[in-house]
Write a protein that binds this DNA or RNA. Structure first.
Lengths: 150, 150
DNA sequence: GGTAAATAAGATAATTAATGTCTTATTTAT
DNA sequence: ATAAATAAGACATTAATTATCTTATTTACC
């Protein structure tokens, strides 16, 4: 019951972009190096983020990614669920038919509550808040090392 | 980010035993059939529950399992964590060294809060509560079908 | 337009975790 | 002593995750 690497990488990428500001194009390479994400892995992650309309991908030289919505308008929950799918915690919440009683099942109700709380907590915080405070993702506008990964 | 089958089975098994009452010996076969758990899989799960002092295993003819503590004294969280390990949600919570700033990282703080909430919710409900109310685990003292799984 | 830089897209491989099964050993009621 | 019941651990299968590789496409710049 843990966030996947892909989910973790997506969060890092999004926080990094949010820190740079909405619409600011950043090269994939810079993101990889700064947020410590394997280059090809980020490519796949970015595709999903783009499909979900969270970023825009620009190809070609001077290409890269930029944040599509305002950082205030994207929650941590959104980013996480784009990557790992909707959070359910327990199978019987996802597929009510897997459990005959669902609605009146005491165990079911606990998982339902836990799930709602979790989604609420992750949904209450925006990329803007995450980016404006100090975080593990190094964002200072320093020079990028020239050791490419690609 | 979902409870494993093993975790789900463990909960079913424990709720079933709790419904029967502390100290009441129930055959493994009965539990398997009623809670719909593959027999050999339950064997492994039971070993972990026993190691964690949640049940006692009796071998031999007329053997089976019974609840060691009072149902009031076992939380859903305990059962779940015996099976899947301590819940962390995010790697950086489990291993603070995986993230340089940990304490002051804004992302870290959200996961920490979410984790605490989740563990609190699961920790607040006991097997006694789960067993006394209606649940998906069929517990009525009916006859067991004679079609053995073993 | 041509070229090179940058990312896309999808296939594939490697790794790890989860699930389930099988075999042999041990315990215990009768 | 025997048979019933579970233990313990090895093994197999499946699925998910993570990562990489190859080929294709886009686009800035000459």
């Amino acid at each position: 019951m843990r966030l996947t690497r892909a989910g973790e990488y997506a969060v890092r990428c999004m926080v990094y972009l949010a820190h740079k500001g909405q619409g600011v194009l950043i090269s994939k390479q810079e993101i990889c190096e700064r947020a410590d994400i394997p280059s090809h892995f980020l490519a796949k992650i970015a595709q999903e983020l783009a499909k979900a309309q969270l970023i825009i991908i620009r190809q070609g030289p001077k290409g890269g990614y930029y944040l599509l919505p305002q950082p205030e308008d994207v929650s941590l929950l959104q980013v996480v669920e784009v990557m790992i799918g909707e959070i359910f915690l327990n199978d019987c919440i996802d597929r009510p038919q897997s459990c005959t009683l669902s609605k009146s099942c005491s165990v079911h109700r606990v998982w339902d509550k836990a799930r709602n709380q979790l989604r609420e907590t992750l949904g209450a915080v925006s990329l803007a808040e995450l980016a404006e405070k100090e975080s593990c993702i190094p964002v200072f506008p320093a020079s990028i090392s020239s050791s490419s990964q690609e």
